[in-house]
Amino acid sequence: MKNWKFALGMAFGLVSTSAYCAGQVTNYAKSSGYKACLSTVSDLEIFFADNANYGSWAFVAKDKSDDQPLNATLELTYTDGVQLIDFTVIPSKDGTCSYSYSRTWYSEKSCMATSKEAFMSNATYKAEINKNITAFEDTKGAKILLTPAGVGCMVQKKEIGFRHKKQNS
């Protein structure tokens, strides 16, 4: 019985350790033959997940993958909650790489209180999307959407990097 518990503990240890391994999406892209925007994929993965406990799920077309967008979803797990990151990297004919991302998380505060948080300090109100979602834009052009969710607020931050950079060789 002790051996079974030890083996199970070792298996869980390996799973949780691998969650801290950087480069999950970058390694997937490499193994899929995706070279067109590999440095941009790596830059984004490091930006979002460096030193974080995370898991990922990514995909790219197998046929002519260097001409296709790559999409990745990251789950960043923190002691105070979870964040969902979804990013897409798109190669351009000129060798640059554009991207878009959405970062989504739940705040236990109301949307009014969330709008006064430090991360919103450079954001200005823009519009009500329809009935429930309030849109803001920060000074760097990122869009921030606040949606009431129970007693708290669902936050989504979106940004586009157009022709981000040339691929590193």
Results as ranks from 00 to 15, higher is better:
49 A>G: 03
124 T>L: 13
136 F>M: 04
87 F>E: 00
19 A>W: 06
128 E>V: 12
49 A>W: 00
127 A>K: 13
133 I>R: 08
1 M>C: 11
34 Y>W: 07
16 S>T: 15
77 T>Q: 08
86 D>A: 07
61 A>Y: 02
51 N>C: 11
97 C>H: 01
5 K>M: 14
168 N>H: 08
122 N>K: 12
112 M>V: 14
20 Y>W: 15
3 N>E: 13
126 K>V: 06
115 S>I: 07
6 F>S: 12
82 V>L: 08
94 D>Y: 08
145 L>C: 11
114 T>V: 10
102 S>T: 10
123 A>L: 12
71 N>Y: 08
141 G>L: 05
126 K>C: 04
154 M>T: 04
166 K>N: 10
80 D>Q: 11
92 S>V: 03
62 K>G: 08
34 Y>C: 01
152 G>M: 07
84 L>R: 06
95 G>T: 06
46 I>W: 05
95 G>R: 08
107 S>D: 10
113 A>I: 10
23 G>L: 03
5 K>G: 10
20 Y>F: 15
167 Q>Y: 06
102 S>N: 11
146 L>N: 02
114 T>G: 05
102 S>G: 13
77 T>K: 08
123 A>D: 05
95 G>Y: 07
57 W>N: 09
122 N>L: 10
33 G>I: 02
139 T>I: 12
76 L>K: 02
2 K>H: 14
49 A>N: 01
148 P>C: 14
96 T>K: 11
95 G>V: 09
73 T>K: 09
148 P>H: 12
90 I>H: 00
97 C>W: 00
148 P>G: 13
3 N>L: 11
164 H>N: 06
81 G>C: 11
163 R>C: 08
32 S>R: 06
29 A>P: 01
135 A>H: 07
18 S>P: 09
96 T>I: 06
104 T>E: 03
1 M>F: 11
89 V>L: 05
2 K>N: 14
133 I>V: 15
117 E>P: 01
36 A>H: 03
9 G>I: 13
82 V>G: 05
